[in-house]
Design a protein around this nucleic acid. Structure first.
Lengths: 350, 350
DNA sequence: TATTTTCTGAGGTACGTACCTCAATTTGGT
DNA sequence: ACCAAATTGAGGTACGTACCTCAGAAAATA
């Protein structure tokens, strides 16, 4: 049988009460006694029964995701995964909610954060553009005892905070490498396009992309970033101009997770199938583009992993535990047509 | 507050005993009563407290992994992940062990399977080459009430069984696509090499690879598979011959997870850096090769996911639940130098 | 040594569910 | 309407841990 606290007490030669004090780090225990109990824990291989502990503690974790309103498909899939997690975690006494705020209004984000108190939520995952107000509000939130993780896009804070997301610099470098290898034998210019370059992740991706391209593929020249701002008309004009100026555009890199406007504008100005096109995030639009050949590769991060990882990190922090770093590493995925996966299921029912 | 069985009893207008009978599918309850309780479950949003249930039930899950002895690095990393899971799951009342058997002796595998009984283990994850004896032993194992998943490489069984692993056909197709795109402007032959072609996964990969190459890249010709059988000397001779016969080998595809012998033999016969080289599985050797440019891409499956997924599927089956198919989908990962990830940690401690 | 302070033990209740027994009630068949 | 069978209720114990109180023992201080 698996040893219980009772066995532990006997093994350590102390009472159940003292074992409890040590296990839950309560004050008023001599150092030698603590060590004796810890030694006994190792000796008999005691493992706390989490089910029993949760039950006795009646503990509940209430977490919230703070997401921008502006909704591209990637955000929608994040929301979908949060909904999934909401039901998947009920059994683990974890309540998950989310709220959305206008991403271009740091003031509103800050006031939203200010409204959160320890009796409302135990932890928050924040996805917001960088701004001093947001940083300060986050700081105060943490001081109030609410656990915080930076979600998907980091804030360059003064105080280190848990971050759940990919290294966007490396993601850009990944795109750069693929672009370089895909364009073998086709020297020329690379069109780089994004919704906006004020977002931190886009900037970092661009840096990583440029690094690889200039270092390893001098025959390719990345053009200055074109910003769409979601305006198809305007983007179309800019892009058309570029294509008439440069006849040697051999690749397109879409930095932002919103790819539709960019690709639509370009496809009206040029034949995409003759170029190598790389974009970000696994959206249904991008999947379709991969399947029909409009996209050659997609760099993605798994939204389900992001959400679950954020929850696990928050829960570890609430318990005063250290998150398992290796498990919370979010991978930079490369998707092409062949590894998209087809059916929803590969598990076969007997 | 979250509703309990007591609340459920009140809402359904029945006693606690009846609620218990319905929840645990015990016999002796009228159909109408069952339906009334189920309706109440939906109505009040009852969710069984898994912690309490586990505690009361005193349930323990004992799972075993059956792995081949022949150890390439991929297998070693599987073992490492099983060890991790062993400690990570103790809190969830799940015991994980593994045993290894000679992969080339179906008879021994079968007898190993025969020795497993429901009082020894609740579930088994089997990774074994295909053989009738193994299939039959698996069949009998399931009839004895032990839950089974096919692990990593599937058996083409008569009876459908849960399978945890990637679609190797798609994995090969992924390699084919990358090879095709990497070799743009370099028509020629592709050297395909594996430890053995008797393993099912290798055959499936080859099929997927060929499919893409012949359909989309007619300028590339994949040569017949070279088998190393772990014999460097012999492999070296064969490969040297090939390179002297064909001067236009522009790519190498290593089918099997053991890449060392293959790559070593080839690098002695030719300059690998002028060719596109694609291999399988994230081993430390392959990582190193990616970093130093000896490999251009690696197709991988995440061993940690494989192990955890197998455990989750087995646990679901033991509970009589259906596994969440989407969560147990194992992805085909593409690795290049830039998305390997560097440090172990991206979570920063406050 | 006397007194305070710190530490430890004993015993209790609670958490939500599983599973058991036995009696009471309802249902179905005749 | 009667009996047997099927169904339901009432009440109990158990799981392992958390957290509480209060008394008593040990250690530190004066």
């Amino acid at each position: 049988m698996r040893p219980t606290t009772k066995d532990l007490a006997k093994a350590a030669g102390v009472s159940l009460a003292t074992v409890d004090r040590v296990l839950n780090r309560r004050a008023g225990v001599r150092k030698e006694t603590v060590e004796a109990v810890n030694a006994a824990i190792v000796e008999i291989g005691f493992e706390r029964n989490i089910s029993a502990a949760n039950l006795a503690r009646g503990r509940r974790y209430r977490f919230e995701f703070l997401l921008p309103t502006a909704g591209d498909q990637f955000l929608e899939s994040l929301v979908a995964r949060i909904e999934e997690a909401r039901t998947a975690f009920v059994g683990e006494l974890t309540e998950v909610r989310f709220r959305r705020v206008l991403s271009d209004d740091p003031h509103q984000i800050a006031s939203e954060l200010t409204s959160i108190r320890p009796d409302t939520a135990d932890g928050i995952a924040i996805m917001a553009p960088e701004a001093p107000q947001v940083r300060d509000a986050t700081q105060r939130l943490m001081e109030r005892g609410v656990k915080v993780v930076q979600f998907v896009s980091g804030q360059p804070g003064t105080r280190p905070v848990d971050f759940v997301g990919v290294d966007n610099n490396a993601a850009g470098a990944t795109a750069g490498r693929l672009m370089g290898k895909f364009c073998t034998g086709h020297p020329g210019r690379i069109l780089v396009i994004a919704d906006t370059m004020t977002a931190r992740d886009n900037v970092e991706r661009r840096q990583g992309f440029d690094l690889v391209l200039t270092r390893d593929y001098p025959e390719l020249e990345a053009l200055p970033s074109v910003e769409t701002h979601g305006d198809l008309e305007r983007t179309h004009r800019i892009v058309r101009n570029l294509y008439s100026n440069f006849s040697d555009i051999s690749g397109v890199y879409v930095l932002s997770s919103e790819t539709r406007v960019a690709l639509q504008a370009i496809s009206e100005a040029s034949d995409l199938s003759t170029q190598q096109v790389i974009a970000h995030e696994r959206t249904s639009f991008n999947e379709e583009m991969l399947r029909n050949g409009g996209l050659d590769a997609v760099i993605a991060q798994n939204p389900g992993h992001l959400v679950r990882s954020a929850i696990r990190v928050l829960r570890a922090r609430c318990d005063g535990r250290e998150p398992i770093a290796s498990q919370e590493q979010i991978r930079i995925e490369i998707l092409i047509r062949e590894n998209l996966g087809h059916g929803p299921s590969r598990v076969i029912q007997p």
